[in-house]
Nucleic acid binder design. Structure first.
Length: 891
RNA sequence: GGGCGGGUAGCUCAGUUGGGAGAGCACCGGCCUUACAAGCCGGGGGUCACAGGUUCAAGCCCUGUUCCGCCUACCA
């Protein structure tokens, strides 16, 4: 028997690893594409291989795990597809740093060796984050783990590239792109983070050719003037109606550049004259295209000035800005300089200021793809939850621009395009070609650029399932049931998966997208290393256990709201885990432990009121939890269970059945209650398992009458009917009344400072026979829980002379205080009660005196108010009488 | 510039067809009551940002104001 008893406190460290291994060994996370059960699938948002688990991952994966475990318990055949992302730039940075520490760089190594070094690094440390996900309890089907650089996924990438190219949706072109001079690569628009910065607006005079006067332009980036090839004014700008000049002289370089007229120019801004630098500004580039202007690149890819910058050549772009301003000032061409805020783009990987640069890159023409992705959401094929995000999704999709997919790095999927050295045409192909498809020359060279990492992530839902082959896995699990993700990658990832999924599978990639919040620190600030407010999930797990951590995340995962996390909160929920543990400990002390003991279907006639009540509550709670989980209201599901387990099961049910378990009501009653206790305990564990898998599994194995893993249990909702667990409103009403009486007595005890050790004599005076019968039947319950010496119940029961009085619906409660009564205190207490009730009465009366209310409000609302009114009046009268007597006695 | 979210107890936040203002933590008081002091019992505390409107009735719906946060933009 003792082997089944639990320790006094729950120690997570002893059990977590053991159960995780057990689950793996029993293949409890494995999906089966052959199984006949309903399929449920989620693909994990693949973390970067370079990553370490942060709070975002923890929340994201906890929620997915809750869903997967819940669905499994409901008998569905769950596939949770795990894997990692090769994270091109980030990973390359990491390995380059490592090389630098050894005094080497990638150029020395060469492409091939460098890539070998990355793979080597990956096999050494690339699975760190996977192990961390396991610590979190993630029930992914690990046998199917994928990596975006795997052979299979690389094949998908190639196939997609080749087909899109054939369809004309991938093209190569010379455009302004975002260039990171530190990473030395192009970036997509999304990979640029804009940040508002204090800057200066410089007003510069561009003299006319004849030397008389000139135009004043304003710019925040004076260094780009070296590449100006025009000055533009708005044709409707009346100030320039009489302008005769056609050219200005570009200062510092002395180039003659035209004055052009373009409607793009904002007449409201500055002087209405705009310098045009087509090689270094996206807008200017478009103006330049319209007016066939020359593109002069003055800032090089390394961030220093080019040959074209003349005497400024070789200067860093920001040093050059100073130098240009100084020179202009000396020459008297700097008209004025004023503070001006503008937003500056930074590389999302290294935070370097991004340079808009003219460059030849590969692009995806996304408009046609976006149209399908928009339609799918409009038609409700894919539902975004919460719905607010739908608007954001549409906004972005409607304004989408072509996607720059080439990166000038080595780590990634090399673009399957070969340029002919003879005819200069490009061959794009699945298999490495031997010769140019245009002229047949064997003199072909493969594109050195690799693809944006998000290009391969966009294929994740189907590439991981074996596409382009037609696999049983795709057959069963695509489209996936839901995608769980943070809003920060809604565009990066979700939108692109939608586009690619619809284009290549001709089917949405997921039926629902659940967008969860960000985890912030306790003050609502974003966690960041520089702020030093980062909480490491692994530290939290170490300190409080995985279950407490997971439950905290779930409890705070209210829709559409960020989660502010602090360790104190996790500590609070650790108390809950421990409470559960101790409740189980109590149950195990009383349940019979012989193996194979069968707990029977419950016979509602043979059980006590607390038994009936807790079963009824269990039934209701089960329904609410399932409903909440089905609609992604994790916090509500967690909150409901917390309340039920702690404040109903522990606080009332366990206390109430103690006498029965101690045998005071005979063996039949004792066995019946044990049976109920077992059922409730079992169901609590199953209901909680998706949230707190470890502790529930641990207790499950100690609970008699269970077999194997809790993961194979039946979800309560699915067997309540056959076990006789039903809703029972009568029992709830009666139990609530008993609870109210006990609480009222406890209140008197507390307020009158009566020691808990002192047993009290109580007289109960019900208003009617039915109430009296109910109370009489459960008098012992009241005596035990309220710690009474005696309890007399009767419609006209004699009340003791010195008492404290409480009035609840249908019953007056007299607590005998002979010898210990404190009149002043009791007077005070009663006055407080009266003032409370009077206040309430005023509000209710006001309502009932309102004719419109009586006539227009629904009948059941009015009746409820009337009933309350009567109760209040009655209670008030009784309290007044009591108070009068006390005053007489005390006075 | 556009969009989204938020302002409810000292703190962090729930509040899903408009009809009872709630939870956890913190605080105050009392308890070693044979599962649990990581606990038990009791208690105090809020003009639901502000101003209007709709309604018999508004934390909830509408309008405006204000403060905070985030996203987005071809803001010289």
């Amino acid at each position: 028997m003792s082997s089944n008893l639990l320790n006094k406190g729950y120690e997570p460290h002893n059990v977590e690893e053991q159960w995780y291994e057990y689950w793996i060994k029993e293949k409890l996370f494995s999906a089966s594409e052959e199984g006949s059960e309903k399929g449920y699938s989620i693909v994990i948002p693949p973390p970067n291989v370079t990553g370490v688990l942060h709070m975002g991952h923890a929340l994201n994966n906890t929620l997915q795990d809750i869903l997967c475990r819940y669905k499994r318990l409901r008998g569905e055949n769950v596939l949770w597809m795990p894997g990692t992302d090769h994270a091109g730039i980030a990973t390359q940075n990491v390995v380059e740093k490592k090389l630098a520490a050894e005094g080497r760089d990638r150029e020395q190594l060469g492409r091939e060796k460098f890539i070998e070094a990355v793979w080597e690094w990956r096999s050494e440390s690339g699975s760190a984050i996977i192990n961390q996900l396991k610590r979190l309890g993630a029930s992914c089907d690990w046998d199917r783990e994928r990596f975006t650089m795997d052979e299979g996924l690389s094949k998908s990438v190639r196939k997609v590239f080749v087909q899109l190219h054939k369809e004309g949706l991938i093209y190569q072109g010379n455009y302004i792109i975002n260039w990171c001079p530190r990473c030395n690569t192009a970036l997509s628009d999304l990979e640029v983070e804009h940040e508002e910065q204090e800057g200066q607006l410089y007003h510069i005079k561009y003299p006319f050719e004849n030397g008389k006067g000139g135009l004043v332009v304003a710019t925040t980036r004076p260094e780009t003037m070296l590449g100006d090839t025009a000055v533009a004014i708005n044709p409707d700008d009346e100030r320039y109606n009489n302008l005769k000049e056609n050219n200005v002289v570009l200062p510092l370089v002395e180039r003659i550049i035209p004055i052009i007229r373009d409607k793009y120019v904002d007449t409201e801004f500055g002087t209405g004259a705009l310098k045009v630098t087509p090689a270094h500004d996206p807008n200017d580039f478009e103006i330049g295209t319209r007016h066939k202007l020359e593109n002069i690149k003055v800032i090089g890819d390394d961030g220093t000035m080019t040959e074209e910058a003349g005497k400024f050549k070789g200067l860093d772009r920001f040093k050059c800005r100073e130098a240009v301003v100084n020179t202009l000032e000396k020459e008297g061409l700097l008209v004025k300089q004023e503070p001006h805020d503008n937003s500056v783009g930074h590389c999302y990987r290294c935070k370097t200021i991004v340079e808009p640069n003219l460059s030849r890159q590969w692009f995806v023409k996304v408009k046609p793809l976006a149209e399908k992705a928009i339609a799918a959401v409009e038609e409700g094929k894919t539902k975004i939850i919460p719905e607010n995000w739908t608007k954001t999704y549409f906004d972005w999709m409607y304004n989408i621009k072509d996607w720059c997919i080439s990166r000038q790095i080595w780590w990634g999927h090399q673009i399957p395009a070969w340029t002919c050295q003879d005819c200069e045409k490009v061959t794009v192909s699945m298999e490495t070609p031997e010769k140019c498809s245009h002229c047949g020359s064997a003199n072909i060279v493969q594109e050195t650029d690799v693809l944006d990492t998000w290009f391969s992530s966009a294929l994740w839902p189907f590439s991981t399932m074996g596409w382009p082959d037609k696999t049983p896995l795709l057959e069963k699990y695509y489209p996936t049931s839901v995608l769980v993700t943070g809003f920060d990658i809604l565009f990066f990832w979700v939108a692109r998966m939608m586009m690619m999924g619809l284009h290549f599978m001709d089917e949405i990639p997921f039926k629902e997208v659940y967008v969860h919040a960000l985890v912030r620190d306790e003050h609502g600030k974003k966690m960041s290393k520089s702020k030093g407010n980062v909480i490491d999930p692994l530290d939290v797990i170490e300190k409080y256990g995985t279950d407490a951590f997971r439950f905290t995340l779930a409890a705070f995962a209210a829709m559409g709201r960020d989660i502010k996390l602090s360790e104190d909160r996790v500590e609070g929920y650790r108390h809950f885990i421990n409470k559960l543990w101790n409740a189980a400990r109590f149950a195990l002390m009383h349940l019979d432990s012989e193996e194979g003991k069968e707990y029977k279907t419950i016979d509602s006639k043979g059980i006590s009121l607390p038994d009936r009540w807790i079963l009824s509550r269990l039934k209701t709670v089960t329904g609410s939890v399932a409903e909440a989980l089905d609609s992604y209201r994790f916090n509500e599901a967690a909150g409901t269970l917390y309340q039920f387990v702690w404040h109903e099961f522990c606080d009332w049910y366990i206390e109430a059945i103690k006498p029965i378990l101690y045998g005071k009501h005979g063996e039949d009653q004792q066995n019946a209650t044990k049976n109920v206790l077992w059922h409730v305990m079992r169901d609590i564990l199953v209901l909680l398992h998706p949230f707190i898998p470890f502790v529930t599994e641990e207790i499950w194995h100690k609970l008699p009458g269970t077999k194997g893993s809790i993961m194979r249990a039946v979800y309560p909702d699915d067997n309540h009917d056959s076990e006789g667990i039903v809703q029972d409103p009568d029992s709830e009403e009666m139990m609530e009344m008993i609870i109210e009486i006990i609480t009222a007595i406890r209140n008197i005890r507390g307020e009158m400072n009566i020691a808990p050790s002192l047993s009290l004599d109580v007289v109960l005076q019900p208003d009617d026979n039915r109430t009296m019968e109910i109370i009489k039947e459960h008098e012992e319950l009241i005596v035990n829980i309220a710690r009474l010496k005696s309890c007399k119940t009767g419609l006209n029961a004699d009340k003791p002379s010195a008492t404290a009085t409480a009035i609840i619906k249908n019953t007056t409660i007299f607590v005998s205080l002979s010898g210990i009564v404190d009149f002043a205190k009791e007077t005070q207490r009663l006055e407080k009660e009266i003032s409370k009730i009077t206040k309430e009465l005023v509000a209710i009366s006001k309502k009932l005196n309102n004719e419109d209310y009586i006539s227009k409000a629904p009948e059941h609302v009015v009746n409820k108010t009337k009933e309350k009114h009567e109760n209040c009046i009655e209670k008030q009268e009784k309290l007044e009488v009591t108070l009068k007597k006390i005053k007489e006695m005390g006075g």
